[in-house]
Write a protein that binds this DNA or RNA. Structure first.
Length: 490
DNA sequence: CGTCGGTCACTTACGTGACCGACGGTGCCGTAAT
């Protein structure tokens, strides 16, 4: 059967979307492939389709359990039963059952962490893995070195699985991220399929405000007026809750918050409500987004500046998946960098913490974590390095680790300053953004960015829409008139 | 940067204001015995 026939039979489509066919053909040739496809172009088809033409099992590494569950669900809906997600969601019984049918599974989803379980890896090694897929592969570069070290062990896993054809998929990758992916996975001359990251239907806008208070006012005014649905990104969990509460005072708006400290059930509920258009706006931290396929998001606002251009691009990319005109707005003020700078500074263990980690011994009454004053993430990172460096003596380990961490910090600071440089630049936003991704802007969309000039009114709710809504109180009307006046002066 | 929580001085015993330092974000897994 040809790939076109399988596309029709298994997926019900007649044609491929941009890039899909090239990726599939590359994989079928047995070539290691790094594919950079713009958001929302159906990346999962790129590994599912070729799997049907290959013997053996496809192993898919996914960064989020919810993402895995979604994909498994979708595959089951389209009739694929030979699919399994091996993760901590499984109860003991389910797990037993999973191992029983493991050898019959065509698509196996795992997290990088679970591959460190000896028994599970042994079982997977007994299968014949013909395709090794890394979904959202930028995590290797973005999360591996300081947040989820198990991402850095995938290259070793790949070797242990006898180097199956490897496919790394992502929507966000600068040359430097691609290099990280290739190095970490030990790929030799992979086929790199790169498509433009430009999203011409998203207007790129930066609004400068003087201080915190003005930022809040500006945000509230924007959210009240912009066509929804939309997402507002913050770098603070608390603020997502506070601002969401404030926005909800406008009775025409349904707003919810979303961050990583909420329980899974709550998170899923909010996500579903947003997807099914029961919510107008979500106030979220960076926890919100990966794997969310909502077509009609009309605006993305950043209350805090993201700490990398990559993260920024990924977050604004959640707007306008349906191809319709959408807008992204970064609320900018002086000293925007101090928050992310502090986060970078506090995230990784300090020299003293590294030393104390290695000074600890079992006679100390505190745990190693406590003794070195490390949080859970930092402790795991140092434990990873400790194991990774094997039999070297502590002194040498401390030296190597300190150096690596220093390099990592510098890299992050460098990325942060790239973001600031872009923000402060006077040139076309889109041109600058694309240049960061080693691309050149070929054609400028009619509605481009604040530098090229856009009419904000194009993105505002029409008068009718705003006033015809339910219980319009005199207070709202006044509020609205006030805002209208304010806008005319700007 | 802004926010928050703890401490202290001032007092005259509860409460308040000033000051300082810390902190802010992202997610897997564990457990048994396969």
């Amino acid at each position: 059967m040809s790939i076109i026939e399988i596309l029709k039979q298994k997926f019900g489509y007649d044609t491929f979307r941009v890039g899909q066919e090239d990726v599939i053909l590359s994989v079928l040739k047995g070539q290691d492939t790094v594919a950079l496809l713009p958001t929302g172009t159906g990346k999962s088809l790129c590994y599912q389709l070729p799997s049907y033409m290959m013997e053996g099992t496809t192993l898919i590494v996914s960064p989020l359990l919810s993402l895995m569950q979604d994909q498994v669900e979708q595959m089951k809906v389209r009739g694929e039963k030979s699919v399994l997600a091996l993760n901590s969601f499984l109860t003991a019984d389910e797990r037993k059952l999973a191992f029983k049918r493991l050898h019959t599974v065509k698509f196996l989803f795992v997290s990088p962490e679970i591959l460190q379980n000896d028994y599970i890896l042994r079982r997977i090694k007994q299968l014949s893995i013909s395709l090794f897929v890394i979904d959202e592969a930028h995590c290797i570069s973005q999360w591996g070195p300081d947040f989820r070290p198990d991402y850095m062990l995938l290259g070793d896993i790949k070797n242990q699985l006898n180097n199956p054809t490897t496919l790394a998929l992502t929507a966000t990758a600068t040359m430097s991220i691609r290099e990280d992916i290739i190095n970490q996975l030990n790929l030799v001359h992979p086929n790199e399929l790169i498509y433009s990251v430009d999203r011409p239907n998203i207007a790129i806008n930066i609004i400068h405000v003087e201080d915190y208070k003005e930022k809040v006012e500006q945000l509230i005014s924007l959210v009240n007026q912009l066509n929804g649905p939309g997402i507002v990104y913050f770098s603070s969990r608390k603020l997502t809750e506070e601002i969401s509460e404030r926005l909800n005072r406008n009775e025409h708006l349904n707003v919810a918050f979303y961050h990583g400290e909420m329980d899974q059930e709550q998170r899923t509920l909010i996500q579903q409500q947003f997807i099914y258009n029961e919510l107008d706006v979500i106030c979220a931290t960076s926890a919100f987004g990966m794997g969310i396929n909502k077509e009609n998001v009309r605006f993305v606002i950043h209350f805090h500046m993201p700490s990398t251009v990559e993260a920024y691009l990924q977050e604004i990319g959640r707007a306008g998946r349906d191809g319709k005109q959408s807008i992204s707005i970064l609320l900018s003020s002086d000293y925007d960098e101090s928050l992310p700078l502090n986060m970078i500074e506090n995230e990784l263990p300090s020299q003293i913490q590294i030393e104390r980690f290695f000074q600890w011994n079992s006679r100390v009454s505190m745990s190693q974590e406590e003794y070195a004053g490390l949080n859970n993430v930092q402790f795991r990172l140092l434990s990873y390095y400790d194991t990774f460096l094997g039999n070297k003596d502590s002194k040498e380990k401390i030296y190597i680790i300190s150096q690596r961490i220093e390099e990592r910090k510098n890299k992050k600071i460098h990325q942060l300053f790239s973001m600031i440089r872009w923000k402060n630049s006077v040139e076309c936003r889109r041109e600058g953004l694309l240049r960061y991704f080693d691309e050149q802007l070929k054609s400028k969309p009619l509605v481009c960015c604040d530098r090229c000039g856009i009419n904000e009114n194009d993105f505002y709710k029409s008068n009718d829409l705003r006033s015809s809504n339910k219980n319009d109180s005199w207070k709202d009307r006044l509020d609205y008139l006030y805002r209208q006046g304010k806008y005319k002066h700007e």
